[in-house]
């Protein structure tokens, strides 16, 4: 009986290899046909921070305070029906497996937008944006450390 319990414990621990993350979802679908994929690495974020005029930009939005502490940006967008179904299921698994909380859900003209965040204290360590329409889905996952007040400023400026 002890051996059985030990086996079961080892199997359960090894199942963590299947743990979902934004990176694993991106890796799974980035090479699929009909999928637009964008990945930005921590090194690229550092290079972005060195661009002289990144603080001014074209609009009112200053992303410099936010991107300074990011560790990964993953974007997937597709109109392929097969990928839409699989990607939607994987995103659900990611949300259930992690410590994400639903921040906002909005439905409008057939489009459903859900924004999830994983928080550490008052800061956001991971943000998942998932927009689904009947014939298209978009998945954005941003990992890193986003200060809540910086995100609030970003939203506030977009409102104007």
């Amino acid at each position: 009986m002890k051996k059985i319990i030990a086996f079961a414990a080892i199997v359960l621990m090894s199942l963590s290899a299947f743990a979902q993350s934004g990176k694993s979802i991106y890796t799974r679908y980035s090479d699929e046909k009909g999928v637009e994929a964008v990945y930005i690495s921590p090194n690229m974020f550092k290079l972005i921070g060195k661009i002289p005029d990144v603080n001014t930009g074209n609009g009112d939005v200053n992303l410099a305070p936010i991107i300074r502490n990011l560790s990964g940006f993953y974007l997937l967008s597709t109109s392929s029906p097969r990928v839409i179904s699989d990607l939607s299921q994987d995103v659900q698994k990611l949300i259930k497996a992690g410590k994400y909380e639903l921040m906002m859900e909005a439905k409008d003209d057939g489009e459903t937008v859900r924004i999830y965040t994983e928080n550490k204290g008052d800061d956001i360590v991971s943000l998942v944006f998932f927009s689904s329409e009947p014939d298209e889905v978009s998945f954005i996952c941003v990992d890193g450390l986003i200060k809540q007040e910086e995100l609030n400023i970003l939203i506030d400026k977009s409102t104007r």
Binding site: M44, I48, I51, G57, I115, F129
Partner: peptide, 24 residues
């Protein structure tokens, strides 16, 4: 990395965060 040019990567970030904040 999808982009080798930091300026292009930043433009994509700007567009994506703009979309997120717009929906929010």
């Amino acid at each position: 990395d999808t982009y080798s040019d930091p300026a292009v990567a930043y433009a994509m970030l700007e567009e994506s965060f703009g979309k997120i904040s717009s929906k929010m």
